[in-house]
């Protein structure tokens, strides 16, 4: 789910950047630093604006200046039970991997409808029920998150397509 979130970040600036364009520089650095990262809890999709840049404070002993920037950003946090569209990246006997944007999701073969069977001899290997459902690398599908787990700087999720209206989008 997407949120507009107010966040805060401390940026240290080298004295060589002190000058009239310091705010511009801080904003650019903020964008570079946080956009597209994962905190472990959510992904920061994009920074909307940096609305509050504090006074710079020189850190004793180093000469670097510290700025505290408050900014608004669009963040995305996957939730357990959420329905999402995904793109299949690889398929194997245990299940298949799909990407929901930056989030890797694994769908186990237990969480695939029972009529959709693993067919290893097809090229490329696929899950199929020999009619409308074909899940191979590159398939678009809709899935439900069964659980998420966060590590430092990365997230994993388990998905399921064993419910009505889930599965490949044709």
């Amino acid at each position: 789910m997407f949120f507009l979130q107010e966040l805060e970040r401390v940026i240290s600036l080298h004295p060589s950047f002190f000058g009239p364009r310091v705010k511009e520089y801080l904003t650019t650095k903020l964008f570079d630093d946080v956009e597209g990262t994962c905190t472990g809890q959510y992904y920061i999709v994009c920074v909307v604006d940096a609305f509050d840049i504090s006074e710079g404070r020189v850190v004793p002993g180093s000469g670097l200046a510290e700025y505290t920037i408050r900014y608004r950003a669009v963040v995305w946090k996957p939730f357990k039970g959420e329905i999402l569209d995904a793109l299949v990246t690889s398929v194997n006997r245990q299940g298949f991997f799909a990407d929901v944007g930056p989030l890797p999701v694994f769908v186990s073969n237990h969480l695939v409808p029972s009529d959709v069977k693993w067919d290893p001899s097809a090229t490329p290997p696929q899950y199929t029920n020999n009619s409308d459902q074909v899940i191979e690398k590159g398939t678009h599908l809709r899935l439900k998150l069964m659980g998420t787990r966060s590590d430092v700087g990365s997230m994993f999720a388990i998905g399921s397509i064993k419910e009505d209206y889930l599965g490949s989008l044709t």
Partner: peptide
Amino acid sequence: FGGMCANCG
């Protein structure tokens, strides 16, 4: 998968 059970999450 990634420290989660792939079947029960």
